[in-house]
Design a protein around this nucleic acid. Structure first.
Length: 827
DNA sequence: ATCTCCCGCCATATG
DNA sequence: CATATGGCGGGAGAT
């Protein structure tokens, strides 16, 4: 019986504490029995206590535990008791919530820096984690799987994962968004909603067929895991079809957010769509339930990552659980050109900006032997064309994707959904990029004076198992390693802050297209920035163990932007333009200084340089490449029209710049590091690609040509139309006038993780002040959701436009069906 | 009662 | 074969 359990919990812990040797708690709690090997040291007990008490304390203490004394233990105990007392007489500990995946995930995340520097690659050992976090292994898998879907971690081998942190996030999100668009999720969503709607009226409309057909057509039966250039799944082995669930489900779930306009997705809809993809119209109820369960699991993790937040949408039916995207905005996918630097932080600029197509590569080549997923710039082109073709095909009214069914694990021949190109391996880039100088620069820049902080004790200097790249890393890496959370990472975050000054136009964006350009004086700036950041943090910083945590940085932009967001629009653009110009100059200047961050994925070409002697070759080539690239990426960012090709050529960017970039680029993925040597020539498709530079050029040109003038102005057409939409939440300015619309959104802005909210116990020094903040903004906002936007008729192929163009297009053909009211309430 | 979602059995995959 | 992974769904807290 559970009841006894609860009460006993506390006492149990206490007891256990003093009996190091004895079998822990054999009493009520089952969990205890399980841990066989674990030596129940006072410390471990302490940990438990702490964890029970509050996350913050726990994580903080956890690290320091190395040399605890009995005194400490007692103290901890004390605290715990106090918490208990102060709180509620005993309704405490092992409550279900304390075991929630969300909380667990937080603990997990607390162990690693959001933006680990290249030097601090952390490895995750599941055994350690499970032990330290006191959880069943199974749970960790849940977390890791979701993280994997976001490319925040990747599996190395049994029991081993690498932590990438959020570096890849922007890239991933963009890729996901793109895939989501290609999958026409929007339509699917609308479909479902429409269906519901119809159901209301007609007792049992025979819409089935309609829906079935439409849905069926649009649904992709298969949708392999979306990969990123540098983060493929380790080992082809991992390719089994089983790679379906959590991982993929998670990605799909995220996609839904990214594509839907009010960025709110109800579980119900999500579940239906996800099911739909797996099997046609399966009205299986139990299946639905299961799906929902999984979605909750995923949602919990995503919530911990603060990518989404739980809300409730209230419609006619009643209120349904839903989630709202609170993560970084993802720039509108401008068709293939994806050059925009979506970077959140300068740290990752590079990675994110990699051309979209690349993102989309999937890992479908199971059977094919190892097949390095080396991506060639030349390939990109190819891919692109393929993609286009595919789209066209897909666009066919009927069932586009079906083909791919077989695709699942067979032929590379069929590019199933998106181009599954071998990706340029990030590692490669990394590998080459890592030059001693770079490293040094890096080190220097991020105030080496790390904050004195207890850090993950272990950090087992991993012996790089993998060949090439690792080696290079390691050799160089000795440097930094200050503190995971401190130094290096900071520099990175900072940029974004600067960024918004410039890029204000998109308020909620965490990842602004950063003004990479203006980053010139990194060093000096960095220090400044840091200060800034810290100050700002004060307000709503999460009471995590590490105050310094990057998270703060993320949130920053929002706040700032809020204040002046609107007017900034204009200005920002102007500024951006200026920046652009500046950038060029600065680039030159900064040669010595370095640390110029280049946003874009334009690095791709660089890859080629990989082969041969890293340094020299790369520089030369890079320089060339960069020149080409440079204009390209800049334009998207700024919203300016792409420069003429001629200019592209002319622009010379010193090789140096590149270097820095690279660093940032490849924060992670040691694993990959495929073949450095033959990367260029590599494999299959290479044939079509003559030489890198030329191909790159072509690529570029193509893009330019392809890019319609309108496209580049991301400015979110959607937002304009629907002011209150996604971003409405936090922006005070918007709230006022939004009332014209029908629905209401009650926003209860609570920055805190939901679980933290109610708990008085949590209030530690940190948390104490918190509660107050969240409450204030309870202003109702109006949001109207365009549920039924349909791009053309049911059969009209939206293919071309929709897919490639993104939002704008979609909205054009929009057919607004009765807008429904919906009320979104948080919590 | 409904919403959440933890727990852990057990099928698979991996080594 | 022993383990590591990870579907999956019962069923119990939380509301």
């Amino acid at each position: 019986l559970k009841t006894p359990l609860k009460q006993a919990a506390t006492s149990q812990l206490v007891l256990t504490e003093r009996q190091p040797d004895c079998q822990p708690l054999s009493t009520p709690p089952k969990p205890q029995d399980t841990p066989p090997a674990e030596p129940w040291t006072p410390t471990s007990n302490l940990k438990m206590l702490i964890s029970a008490a509050s996350p913050e304390i726990r994580s903080r203490e956890q690290r320091k535990q190395l040399s605890d004394t009995s005194a400490e233990v007692l103290q901890a105990k004390h605290c715990l008791q106090e918490h208990l007392l102060g709180d509620e007489y005993e309704k405490s500990q092992p409550s279900r919530k304390e075991k929630s995946l969300g909380l667990l995930c937080h603990k997990f995340l607390a162990r690693y820096p959001d933006y680990p520097s290249a030097a601090q690659k952390s490895y995750i050992c599941l055994d350690e984690v499970t032990e330290e976090l006191h959880v069943e292994r199974r749970r960790i898998y849940d977390i890791v799987n979701v993280l994997e879907s976001l490319h925040m971690v990747s599996r190395l081998a049994r029991n081993r994962y690498i932590w990438h942190g959020r570096h890849n996030l922007p890239q991933t999100l963009q890729a996901l968004k793109r895939v989501g668009e290609e999958n026409k999720y929007i339509q699917q969503i609308q479909m479902i909603k429409k269906r519901e709607y119809e159901h209301e009226f007609e007792p049992d409309g025979e819409k089935k067929e309609e829906m079935a057909s439409s849905l069926g057509s649009s649904e992709q039966s298969e949708m392999p895991f979306v990969e990123l250039p540098g983060v493929e799944f380790r080992a082809a082995s991992v390719n089994g079809r089983k790679y379906k669930s959590l991982r993929v489900m998670s990605q799909k779930f995220v996609m839904l957010f990214l594509v839907s306009t009010p960025q709110i997705v109800s579980l119900e809809v999500a579940a239906k769509i996800l099911i739909g993809e797996d099997q046609l119209e399966d009205l299986d109820k139990s299946k639905f339930k299961t799906k929902i369960r999984r979605l909750y699991d995923i949602a919990n993790v995503l919530s911990s990552l603060k990518l989404i937040k739980k809300v409730h949408v209230t419609e006619e039916r009643g209120r349904k659980p839903a989630f709202k995207w609170t993560g970084p905005e993802v720039l509108p996918n401008i068709q293939d050109t994806k050059l925009e630097a979506t970077s959140t932080t300068c740290s990752s600029p590079i990675s994110e900006s990699i051309p979209s197509k690349e993102h989309c590569s999937k890992n479908l080549f199971p059977s094919k032997g190892k097949q390095n997923f080396t991506r060639h710039s030349s390939l990109i082109k190819l891919v692109k064309s393929i993609e286009n073709d595919r789209r066209k095909i897909q666009s066919a009214p009927t069932s586009p994707v079906k083909i791919s069914t077989s695709t699942y694990q067979s032929l590379p021949v069929f590019p199933s959904t998106i181009a599954q190109l071998p990706a340029i391996t990030k590692p490669q880039l990394e590998g080459q990029s890592k030059t001693a100088e770079e490293m040094q620069m890096k080190c220097a820049l991020p105030s080496a004076e790390a904050v004195p902080k207890a850090e993950p004790s272990e950090q087992p200097a991993p012996s790089q198992p993998l060949g090439v790249s690792p080696a290079s890393h390691s050799s160089v890496s000795p440097v930094i390693l200050p503190h995971p959370h401190s130094g290096v990472s900071y520099a990175i975050y900072l940029h974004p802050s600067q960024a918004h000054t410039v890029t204000t136009y998109s308020p909620g964006f965490m990842l602004q297209p950063l003004p990479c350009a203006n980053v010139t004086g990194v060093k000096s700036n960095s220090s400044k920035v840091i200060n800034k950041t810290t100050t700002e943090e004060g307000d709503n910083q999460i009471a995590t163990a590490e105050p310094t945590k990057p998270l703060a940085a993320e949130e920053r932009p929002e706040m700032k932007s809020e204040t002046s967001s609107q007017r900034c629009l204009k200005r920002s653009q102007a500024l951006q333009e200026n920046n652009l110009i500046k950038r060029h100059r600065s680039d030159e200047e900064s040669l010595g200084t370095s640390l110029t961050f280049f946003p874009s994925g334009y690095l791709i070409p660089l890859t080629h340089c990989t082969h041969g002697n890293k340094a020299d070759c790369s520089n030369k080539e890079k320089a060339g490449m960069c020149s080409l690239q440079h204009p390209t990426y800049s334009s998207p960012v700024t919203g300016v029209i792409p420069m003429p090709a001629s200019e592209l050529k002319t622009v010379n960017i010193p090789a140096f710049h590149i270097t820095p970039l690279n660093i940032m680029l490849s924060p992670n993925s040691i694993a990959a590091a495929p073949v450095l040597s033959n990367s260029c020539l590599n494999s299959s498709n290479a044939s079509s690609a003559p030489n890198p530079s030329s191909s790159a050029l072509n690529f570029m040109l193509q893009h330019i040509g392809l890019i319609p003038a309108g496209v580049q102005v991301p400015a979110n057409p959607v937002l304009q139309h629907v002011p209150a939409s996604s971003q409405a939440e936090n922006s005070s300015h918007s709230s006022g006038n939004t009332n014209l619309q029908e629905g209401k959104v009650r926003t209860n802005t609570a920055p805190w993780p939901w679980w933290v909210e109610g708990e008085g116990q949590c209030s530690d020094s940190f948390t104490a002040g918190k509660p107050s903040a969240p409450k204030e903004p309870q202003e109702p906002q109006a949001v109207t959701e365009n549920f039924f936007r349909t791009p053309g008729g049911p059969n009209s192929g939206f293919s071309l436009s929709a897919t490639s163009e993104g939002p704008e297009r979609t909205s054009q053909g929009t057919l607004n069906i009765p807008q429904r009211k919906l009320e979104v309430s948080e919590d």
